[in-house]
Design a protein around this nucleic acid. Sequence first.
DNA 1: CTTGGAATGTCAACAAGGCTGACGTAAACT
DNA 2: AGTTTACGTCAGCCTTGTTGACATTCCAAG
Lengths: 178, 178
Amino acid sequence: MTLQAHGAARGRAPRSGEELLFLTDDQLRQGIELMFFAYQAFTSDADRILEGQGLGRAHHRALHFIGRCPGLTVAQLIDILGVTKQSLNRVLRQLVDRDLVESRVGATDRRQRNLFLTPAGIALERQLSEAQRERVRRAWRDAGSEAVAGFRRVLEGMMDPDKRARVRALMAPPGTGG
Amino acid sequence: MTLQAHGAARGRAPRSGEELLFLTDDQLRQGIELMFFAYQAFTSDADRILEGQGLGRAHHRALHFIGRCPGLTVAQLIDILGVTKQSLNRVLRQLVDRDLVESRVGATDRRQRNLFLTPAGIALERQLSEAQRERVRRAWRDAGSEAVAGFRRVLEGMMDPDKRARVRALMAPPGTGG
DNA sequence: CTTGGAATGTCAACAAGGCTGACGTAAACT
DNA sequence: AGTTTACGTCAGCCTTGTTGACATTCCAAG
């Protein structure tokens, strides 16, 4: 498991100041597996809570982002989640039926629907994300702040640039210039 | 529902030597979202290749780990993937039918099946993981080696300890003591 | 040799959660 | 007035997960 730099030493001209990363296929594969295993563990917490409640991972994701951005529109949520409106709509309808989410007609544009969590929705979302937060909190605490910074940089770098930009714009509330 | 670190400064006794992380709910939530978005991007590459081929993400995962650990048994693969034998068996049968995977009767224990990639399987697995490797490679290169070390530490820390141990044992070939 | 249990394969039925296509409605834009 | 946009919805399909039940094969213990 120890990352051997397999082949010959090639292309090692050191980048000025920065050390050049020597990335073997083996190391990259380990990174890929780490993503898989970490995500598997990461989703297991909320899944456990949701099971038997008639809700699933899809509902959790919707609850999360509605809680995160109260009033966001259906189209925005579709873009974030990367699903079709039909798929999201099924989930959303179930959440509204259970009084976890409220869908209000848009104020300026009345075609739009602005989504909000109800008190019950807020409570469930808190419960769900608390499980995940606890896992992330522990991992971060054990890894240290430098590792956390690296974690963030790498994960951000893995996103598609345009998606990252759109998410940034949505997540950052309007008045986040300073 | 505890968690309001927001307000007063409490529990701030600095850990000796190590800097104490101030983990607000907000920071943790950002970390959670980062996991979601990065994983979303991360899986999209292989998904694109697989679409229309009659294969899906489940097949990719199986191919990956069979390629990684040639000869591993069905039970080991079930443990790695965290699915039922029925679910895995369907995927495996499709892979065998397409001559991407070979299932050999175990040498020592003939109840077991040892799984291997065929040449065609190796080719497909390479193509799939190359897409993912490219994404990871770019993210790592842009982030620098320290960030990569942090990325790894945090993701490893997110895994369940027993799962991590089992995976380590499986992934490290028998003679990886030195 | 018989029997129990472990590892595996397989069939059936079902559910969650994706997808496409088609259609409807209301509101906004031009 | 006509077109486009945002959303809801119905119908049908696919992948991939689940449980339950049962057959097979083989190792190991009695």
